[in-house]
Simulated scan of single mutants.
Amino acid sequence: MFEWLLENGWILWLVLFLGLAAVETLTLDLFFVMMAMGALAAMISTFLGAAFFLQVIIFCVVSLLMVLVVRPVALKHLKRGSPDQLSNVDRLIGESALTLDIVTGESGTVKIGGDTWSARTLDGSLIPAGERVAVTRIDGATALISAPARPQAADSGAV
């Protein structure tokens, strides 16, 4: 069995490569993919006729270099956004919404960026359909809204 493995070492490295790549798809932390690259390098060295102990050394060295050199650079590029960048529903806060029907402190619906949300007012006031409102908070699947301050009409008093 051991002799067969030495003669067909590429199968060992291929299985290790595929296994590490599969684990990476579950963890997504760019660690196991670096080790998979080490297994790929060891598999290539098998085809070039390297001895098994040299294949193991190549696996270890390439994996270590990938983890220490390539992974930090890759993580930096993946996390390029600013730390205060909002995601998911947090980015909806402060957005403008259009009331689709009457919104009260109990119920209503609004359209936010093309999506229809259930809504209610923060202060329990009544906002008629067709009004532009501001999203103040998201509570589960409900947008809590408030009517934006209406601009005062300029006095055109003629004397």
Rank of each mutant, 00 (worst) to 15 (best):
V56R: 13
W4G: 10
I127Q: 01
C60D: 11
A143C: 06
D90Y: 07
L98E: 12
G130C: 13
T116E: 13
A41Q: 09
L5T: 06
L16G: 04
L144V: 15
E3D: 15
F2G: 09
V15N: 06
F59H: 01
S63Q: 01
T109Q: 10
E95W: 12
G140R: 03
T27W: 05
M1Q: 11
A154V: 12
F47V: 06
V33I: 15
V15H: 04
R80L: 06
L30P: 00
V73Q: 07
T121M: 00
A41Y: 09
L12S: 11
I44Q: 07
N8L: 00
Q55K: 01
A158C: 05
S96H: 11
I93G: 15
G49Y: 03
L54M: 14
L5E: 02
T99H: 12
A39E: 08
A119D: 13
G108S: 03
F2Y: 13
I11D: 06
W13D: 01
A21K: 02
L18W: 06
R137Q: 09
I57W: 05
G105Y: 07
E131V: 13
L5H: 01
I127S: 06
A134E: 08
L16Q: 04
R120A: 06
P148N: 08
I93S: 14
A74R: 02
T142L: 10
L64C: 03
W117I: 13
A22W: 15
N8E: 00
S82N: 13
D115N: 14
I138C: 09
I57N: 07
A158W: 08
D139E: 15
R80S: 01
F2N: 03
V61Y: 08
M66Q: 06
T104P: 10
A154C: 10
A149G: 13
F47P: 00
L20P: 00
S63E: 03
A21Q: 05
A21C: 00
A74G: 06
G114H: 02
T109E: 09
T109Y: 03
L68C: 13
F32M: 15
